[in-house]
């Protein structure tokens, strides 16, 4: 474990040097992300200027859910973004050989190699929204809320990562699977709004099949109302652990099927 952490630090340092070469580029990326989010929130504001509440949730509560959804998304983006490249081109170009010839776990190596700083945009907006909505709603914070909050965010991040691991591992058989990852990943937007607005099919799908509802709405609704802790927080932990175990199994089987590329 110690060795892994040390290696991770070295990888991050390496990647930062790479990034500094294109400073302006990185900054514009982060700023444009901020603009995009501000526009989305303005849009929510316009909607709420016409209606008192959305299926029983008021504007500030929706902001809390929205902000919460950005934290696991941002953390996953920050730490585990390299999985996208596996599905899009690393396997197709035969570059995956590199990861198999090093004396560390291939999954760990792929994950650590890149450190995506533009995710700070997501994390920043998420935190601002959460702090703002907590103050605006005058939520009382009890001591046990804080560890539960951290647990919820960490395991929700694992849901994102597991889905990316499983879908990018498909490329070991099909050579490229970036678009499959994209398709599953986009489902996460469903979690930004209360699940009660969807019909039964969508609700079942994002709760039990691709459990993105556990990355935002369920845990966030617990922090807002204090109801159903077992389902909201326990469900997040359970869903992410199950998903993670499955995705690591798929990854390991995929590695056995990997046959590099010609040339």
């Amino acid at each position: 474990m110690r060795r892994m952490l040390r290696l991770h630090r070295i990888f991050v340092a390496q990647y930062m040097k790479n990034l500094m070469e294109y400073k302006v580029d990185f900054l514009t990326g982060a700023i444009s992300f901020l603009i995009g989010q501000v526009v989305q929130i303005a849009f929510l504001g316009i909607i709420f200027s016409q209606i008192p509440n959305l299926v029983g949730w008021e504007f500030n509560e929706i902001l809390f859910i929205y902000g919460f959804s950005l934290l696991p998304k941002g953390l996953d983006h920050l730490l585990f973004d390299n999985l996208w490249s596996v599905g899009y081109f690393i396997v197709r170009k035969g570059d995956f050989d590199k990861y198999l010839t090093r004396p560390i776990n291939s999954l760990f190596y792929v994950i650590c190699e890149k450190f995506c700083v533009d995710a700070f945009g997501e994390l920043f907006i998420g935190l601002v929204l959460i702090v703002y909505s907590v103050i605006a709603l005058k939520l009382t914070i009890t001591w046990y809320m804080i560890p539960l909050f951290i647990i919820a965010v960490v395991f929700a991040t694992l849901i994102y990562t597991s889905i990316k691991i499983a879908t990018s591992a498909i490329s070991f058989w099909t050579k490229a699977s970036g678009h499959i990852t994209h398709m599953f990943y986009m489902t996460n937007d469903f979690s930004k709004y209360p699940t009660t607005i969807y019909n039964k099919f969508v609700r079942t799908f994002i709760t039990y099949v691709v459990p993105f509802a556990f990355t935002a709405f369920y845990p966030a609704s617990f922090f807002l109302t204090g109801e159903n802790p077992l389902f909201c927080i326990g469900g997040t932990v359970l869903a992410s652990v199950v998903l993670f175990v499955i995705s690591v199994c798929i990854w390991n089987r995929g590695i056995k099927a990997y046959e590099s590329a010609g040339s």
């Binding site: 294109y22 302006v24 580029d25 990185f26 514009t28 982060a30 444009s32 603009i35 995009g36 526009v39």
Partner: peptide, 13 residues
């Protein structure tokens, strides 16, 4: 790369 994302974002708005 960054300027491209900025463009997408601003044009969409």
């Amino acid at each position: 790369w960054g300027a491209d994302i900025l463009k997408e974002c601003i044009v969409n708005f």
